[in-house]
Design a protein around this nucleic acid. Structure first.
Lengths: 148, 148
DNA sequence: GTGTCAAATTATAATGATTTTAATTTATTT
DNA sequence: AAATAAATTAAAATCATTATAATTTGACAC
């Protein structure tokens, strides 16, 4: 964990940003909830537990900054809220999501499923792909078995 | 065009909704701007030109209804606004988008690029796919050539 | 160490998209 | 035509997010 904080610190420094206590607290919350797809409000409340003086606006600004630096991915599942996911180490791309329409659970897929599709897009539409976002909506394993 | 309105009318009736004048006006705007990825506000302004008495809330309600009936797809490119695209006739799936990070243009891809990927997801993660959304972010043909 | 400057943060207010409410209108059924 | 339900309007409310102004922090010069 300290290791990853160090890396993020370096990423910030490389663009002449600082890892302030508030930013560090925010990053720590993200690291501790890597699977959780937290909203800005969620992050705010969790950070507040350890650092009660932090403001919501600061959390928003920090998440925005981390998003620009590609430390986190800002995602949107269609409810009105943005969610923030830590990008996995070494991942060049956004990871994919399986959203269950029954129970609302969200599962992540790390594998890059789109290498081939991306090549098609690049050649067929002459579009230079930088990133992609892919979400499947459907019924998760759990909810399938409940229908028996 | 009248043809497609008729179809949508039937879809509404099949769920015991009516195609009111306001709803029809809204659908017509969507048909006339099929490539445009209009926001609710955009639709509202366009509908207002022909039917000045319509309210914004009605447009929202209509778009929400059409979205539930899968007549339109509600999409979200990460700016704070929802956009509404008519689903192509016979399309079972959401279509894909190429969003240019330089000029903001959005191009649609009708082809189903994900048949194979979907099968992988279904078998490997035991997730029953109902729909998907795929967006590529990158640089469009136009913006590429401007960089010469 | 003290003063100065820029960056960051706080608390609050403002914004903008969307939703809700209550009152009114329209369409449908009896 | 009266009664009922569905849809619409206009206005207010809500919620996420962003901007503002004042304050604090930290780095560097003296």
């Amino acid at each position: 964990m300290e290791n990853r904080i160090e890396k993020i610190k370096k990423q910030l420094h490389s663009q002449s940003y600082k890892l302030t206590p508030q930013r560090e607290a925010t990053v720590r919350v993200l690291l501790e909830h890597e699977e959780d797809h937290l909203s800005a409000e969620d992050v705010y409340l969790l950070v507040k537990e350890k650092s009660p003086e932090i403001g919501l606006a600061t959390v928003y600004r920090t998440l925005e900054l981390l998003s620009e630096l590609k430390v986190v991915d800002k995602i949107n599942f269609g409810d009105g809220v943005s969610r923030y996911d830590l990008r996995k180490e070494g991942a060049e791309h956004f990871h994919h999501h399986l959203v269950c329409v029954e129970c609302g659970s969200v599962k992540e897929i790390e594998e890059d499923l789109l290498g081939h599709v991306e090549k098609t897009v690049e050649s067929q539409w002459e579009f230079q792909v930088k990133d992609h976002r892919l979400t499947f909506h459907g019924i998760c394993k759990n909810c399938q078995s409940e229908h028996d």
